Simulated scan of single mutants.
Amino acid sequence: MNVADLNTINFEEGAVLLIDKPLDWTSFDVIRKIRNLIKIKKVGHAGTLDPLATGLLIVCTGKYTKKINEYMAQEKEYTGTFTLGATTPTYDLESQPENFKPYDYLSEADIQNAVQAFLGEIDQVPPIHSAIKKDGKRVYELARKGMDVKLEPRKIIIKEFEVDASQLPEVGFRVVCSTGTYIRSLAHDFGLALGCGAYLSSLRRTRIGTFRVENAVSIDTFEEIIKERKNRNLQQNT
């Protein structure tokens, strides 16, 4: 996305905005902010990022909201870290680590060998603390009430999976995967395969299809550009 284009885009007609979502913001926080700035209601995003994740969020406005499903279906790339030696109920740091186990017996070869089991088409069970609906209700709402939630595995594709185990207990990773993949579940399942447990400790989405986070703007930069655009328009009309 060319930043200069933000000065001329007709948001009502339709635009594709690449936003680098900040930490601790929900994806809807970004949508609400953009709606308030550009003063139109027809704004949506192509794929949720959890609050503790950063990175590429595709935001569509106006007529381009019809393209959201098309963008959501494209493969995605993520980087981040897994932390070995514990699990969390949410599979990330939205909840506290528990079930601590030793991990220092693992060799570099053990960790690299575990990667191989996750390449290609695999079955993955989504986390119960997710927005998937079951019997008409979000499963995270059921999980928070302490209800027993069972989800069926789904077919996903892990096209590329690279790890760096030089800084244990943190394992750096890069993943290229199909839509519908939960990186939190990948962290949890990776920990199970190693026998010591793991949870997702940081996550950044770096690519969706051909769209890259390097071409995205921060929400602060977006706000600054839109406010400057409004000020120019006011000056031209006075």
Rank of each mutant, 00 (worst) to 15 (best):
23 L>E: 10
71 Y>I: 14
125 V>N: 00
15 A>D: 02
94 E>K: 10
10 N>I: 09
129 H>A: 00
104 D>I: 11
7 N>D: 13
164 D>E: 13
198 A>W: 06
93 L>H: 03
67 K>R: 15
27 S>E: 11
168 L>A: 07
120 G>E: 04
178 S>A: 08
147 M>S: 02
237 N>S: 14
74 Q>I: 08
105 Y>T: 05
76 K>Q: 07
39 K>L: 13
153 P>N: 05
52 L>K: 11
99 N>F: 04
55 G>K: 04
136 G>A: 10
12 E>H: 13
80 G>A: 05
5 D>C: 08
186 L>D: 00
193 A>T: 13
56 L>K: 02
72 M>H: 01
89 P>S: 12
183 I>E: 01
81 T>C: 13
227 K>S: 08
161 F>D: 00
100 F>N: 01
222 F>Q: 03
66 K>P: 06
52 L>E: 05
22 P>W: 02
58 I>H: 02
39 K>F: 08
172 G>F: 12
14 G>E: 06
6 L>Y: 15
116 Q>Y: 09
120 G>F: 05
9 I>H: 02
101 K>C: 01
15 A>W: 02
213 V>C: 00
119 L>H: 07
146 G>S: 04
57 L>C: 05
69 N>E: 15
84 L>P: 02
83 T>C: 06
77 E>L: 04
114 A>C: 12
73 A>N: 06
174 R>S: 09
89 P>Y: 05
39 K>C: 09
168 L>F: 06
29 D>W: 12
127 P>K: 09
33 K>Q: 11
97 P>F: 08
75 E>I: 06
110 D>Y: 06
94 E>M: 08
78 Y>C: 07
168 L>D: 03
145 K>E: 12
233 N>Y: 14
205 R>T: 05
153 P>G: 03
56 L>I: 06
122 I>H: 07
